[in-house]
Design a protein around this nucleic acid. Structure first.
Lengths: 153, 153
DNA sequence: TTTGATGCAAATGGTTTGCATCGGG
DNA sequence: CCCGATGCAAACCATTTGCATCAAA
């Protein structure tokens, strides 16, 4: 069950939950499957008839990431993208899913399973490195592109 | 055993192995452990007394990545970084090592082992996605920062 | 009323590009 | 000669910042 934006005030201890910040959160809620860039958020906000400055969007994204509500990511297309961090993992700041990035059509599929726990433990032990989070991307060819282009060799 | 730059001509089928391109490769050879940015390459080249334009460096990096000799990566510091792809994996374009990125001192350790093969197979099968490469980063605290700051909870 | 938040525009900084020139084959 | 490669400067573009204004507690 999804927490409503209004109920998120507790997360904003020293910050104000302004209309602009609500708006950004709202857009993320309505686009859970997407990885939005600042510019895309700007466009989506105008489509909703709202007026919000691009600079404010950047500042809001920075804040929401600090609060652990958003995760910043980079897909190599020259701009940062963000996605909503699921409630149940916000505390631990662990983000247990990965991305399948198609080299042909640039689509991004999400893989929900997280099979890295054991691997993390191996690495932690071997290198005495305390792991807080991980980020895994797979590059290759998605089902539909494999069919079209016969990328399969 | 490392291939010499002079022996790399075969990789440059339709391109010229110019002094500038040799220089860039040479710097990567001498800094295998580092993840160099364009600007850093520029600095290192001047330290060697060579004169090469920054634009040429960018164009060279793009080319070398296409040829599979370099891997482009992003550590979230606002600039792209590159590292030499080991010979024995250049063909398959697989890059079998990962990064441990310290959130405290920003150091980057490399983990040589690759334990993702089985995981890749699971994902490929489950999602019918042909994986060509993967990229894995671990975020946390390195040994020395754990000691200093007692980040360990 | 005070302090954080916003919006605009200007500045920043990494990267790309246009174009004249250079140089190897 | 020709065509790819280079260098310089200008252009680009995502992101950041300065500052005056706004608004909620």
């Amino acid at each position: 069950m999804q927490k409503k934006i209004g109920e998120m005030k507790s997360q904003f201890k020293d910050y104000r939950l302004t209309p602009q910040r609500k708006l950004v959160l709202e857009i993320f809620m309505e686009n859970k499957e997407r990885h939005l860039s600042a510019e895309e958020l700007y466009q989506l906000s105008r489509e909703k008839g709202e007026d919000i400055g691009l600079a404010t969007i950047y500042r809001t994204l920075e804040l929401l990431e600090e609060l652990g509500l958003l995760q910043k990511m980079n897909f190599g297309d020259g701009r940062s993208r963000y996605e909503l961090v699921p409630e149940d993992v916000q505390d631990r700041r662990h983000h247990h899913h990965h991305h399948l990035i198609c080299l042909e059509c640039n689509s991004i599929l999400e893989v929900e399973e997280d099979l890295l726990s054991q691997l993390e433990r191996v690495v932690e032990e071997k290198h005495n490195f305390q792991i807080v989070n991980h980020y895994l991307q797979f590059f290759g060819y998605c089902p539909s592109c494999r069919q079209d282009g016969k990328k399969d060799k």
